[in-house]
Structures are given as C-alpha cells and as structure tokens.
C-alpha cells in the first residue's frame, strides 16, 4: 500500500484469469473427492486450497506488488502452519 507511495493498478484481464483459475481449482477439489486416495486425501485437499489461497494473496491482495517483507511474513506464517500440520500427522500416520 505505502510501497513507494504509488498504487499499482491490476488490469481486468489478470483478475479474470485469476478468477478462472480459482473456479477451475474449486472444481478440481470437488472432483478429486471421487478418487479414493487414502491418507493422501487430506494432502491433496490442502494443496489445492493452498494454491487457491496463494492466488488470492498474490493477485487480489497485491502481495506481488508490495514490499518484499510482506511476502516473507506470509511465507513464514505458511511455513509454520505447514509444520504444525506435518507434526499432527506424525500422530495419525503412525498410530
């Protein structure tokens, strides 16, 4: 926002492309439930959700056009959450 004091204007085309991407990913995450993946079910669902979240963060929430520090913060938060999920699955996968 305060990045060099100027606003970045994203063209409509980018917005529509991202929107299409989000719709396709949503359809995919619904479709994938019909395949039996066993313990990978959660992994796939989370990966698709992460991809969607990243699209929103990068384009709709302007992470791409902002100061790099914000991207670092988001990456750090994502890393923490991923570690928490991985550690939780140390229980479920080895029970």
């Amino acid at each position: 926002m305060e990045n060099n004091g100027k606003h970045h204007i994203v063209p409509y085309k980018t917005h529509i492309t991202v929107l299409l991407g989000l719709i396709i990913l949503t359809a995919l995450s619904v479709a994938v439930t019909s395949i039996e993946l066993g313990p990978l079910t959660v992994t796939v669902a989370l990966l698709l959700a992460t991809a969607k979240a990243l699209l929103v963060l990068i384009y709709f929430m302007h992470l791409r056009f902002d100061n790099i520090i914000y991207s670092i913060m988001v990456a750090f938060v994502m890393f923490s959450i991923i570690s928490i999920i991985v550690i939780t699955f140390l229980d479920y996968l080895f029970r």
């Binding site: 550690i87 140390l90 996968l93």
Partner: peptide
C-alpha cells in the same frame, strides 16, 4: 491420550 509413538518421541 493414545497418540502414536512417533508423535510421542517428537513432542
């Protein structure tokens, strides 16, 4: 709680 052994050691 009945968590897995791997989780027990890790924690």
């Amino acid at each position: 709680s009945g968590m897995s052994g791997v989780a027990l050691y890790t924690f």
